[in-house]
Design a protein around this nucleic acid. Sequence first.
DNA 1: CTCCAATCGCAACTACTGTAGCTTTAAGCT
DNA 2: AGCTTAAAGCTACAGTAGTTGCGATTGGAG
Lengths: 218, 218
Amino acid sequence: MQLELSLESLKRPGGRSARVRDAVLQATLAELAERGYGGMTVEGVAARSGVHKTTVYRRWRSVEGLIADALEMAREEPWPIPDTGSVREDLRGVVALVRTGFADPSAGPVASAFVAAAMQSADAAVALREFLTARHRQAAVVVRRAVERGELPSGIDAQEVIRVAVAPVYYRLFVTHEPVSAQDMERAADAALAAARTGVLQAAPHDDHDDMSQEPPG
Amino acid sequence: MQLELSLESLKRPGGRSARVRDAVLQATLAELAERGYGGMTVEGVAARSGVHKTTVYRRWRSVEGLIADALEMAREEPWPIPDTGSVREDLRGVVALVRTGFADPSAGPVASAFVAAAMQSADAAVALREFLTARHRQAAVVVRRAVERGELPSGIDAQEVIRVAVAPVYYRLFVTHEPVSAQDMERAADAALAAARTGVLQAAPHDDHDDMSQEPPG
DNA sequence: CTCCAATCGCAACTACTGTAGCTTTAAGCT
DNA sequence: AGCTTAAAGCTACAGTAGTTGCGATTGGAG
């Protein structure tokens, strides 16, 4: 019971449980894509997957649980980080990747649901945090390459540059709900770059522990 | 029927409808503060306000409707924009205002609920957008004063500087759910300032109409 | 003072979400 | 193959969110 989590991946890929999980998670993605987060329901997922609703309730507990699990799966797939030879273009490319990820008619609703679910459930929140941490790590290459090329000063906090670059896009998409123009994206990327150049985003000894994370209930 | 919205404020402040609205909205804030967005319910608000639940459903339709209306009320109250004589400190102050607005034990849950509700309902989304637009306008003085002082180049998009400054905080609070340290805030403010200095955030002729707002359902 | 229109209160009802108790199935082991 | 046990299926039900139709109240106009 204690080791189950780490053993999960060792179980037979064709076992009944695995089959059920697969069916349910795929149904989750499908439901999210066509009904959105607000329209998705546990019973809907159960019906579509052919799995009984009590089973879904038992294993995933709620819509947010389903989304958290789906999010864990999604962490696997890689990201086509750009490599143009110029930080400016690379950063703009990363920001554009983010936007299109939410703009795409099929993937967009799913991605948005992840963000919405993370605001309602602590489990979904950690799943999303881990997902995005992985993405930050991946995208940080863009900055490190720039340092090697001499485009940026060394000692920079690469992931923080990424965060500053994408933050305005997320802010517009999920907080102010303003439209995000191509120019907005360019300005966000270029602003992060300018900040990086002036040394504001240097990596610092993390002596500061003034925590203030936003805890969702449940 | 067509003019009702604009006439709303002209109605007697002590009329029955006004009394009901007041009681309900106050109950909404109270419920949000102690139960949070996820725990708030229309019936709870009705019970606390002493107004029948049918009435609440009829006038506000849902929890999100209640929040949207409460948000409209909240737009009134002013914001203690700092004026230290230095853009750097002023910007940092604005960012700190944002953080504490969500950190405060009584106001925090309410403010967070506004953001969460805007993700679920289109009405709440426009209410929040208008609210934040007002705040951006207020905070922009900080930048304009800096331009007058010669600290920043003229022709700058003052509100965009504010957006870039606060975006990383919102990103951490509501997207990645990472802790927000004092250093994180300083870096966000300083990054926006650096970008502003290098002229990346100049106001531009808005020829770009590549819209991509995030539409919530309902 | 009387009447009109709008709004609110009320009770009953529908539909749906999530749970409980029990039975059945199948994966893995010897 | 036969046995054990964890997990899935099923029925029934409890609780709650949201609706409807109608009667009562209120505020304002003539």
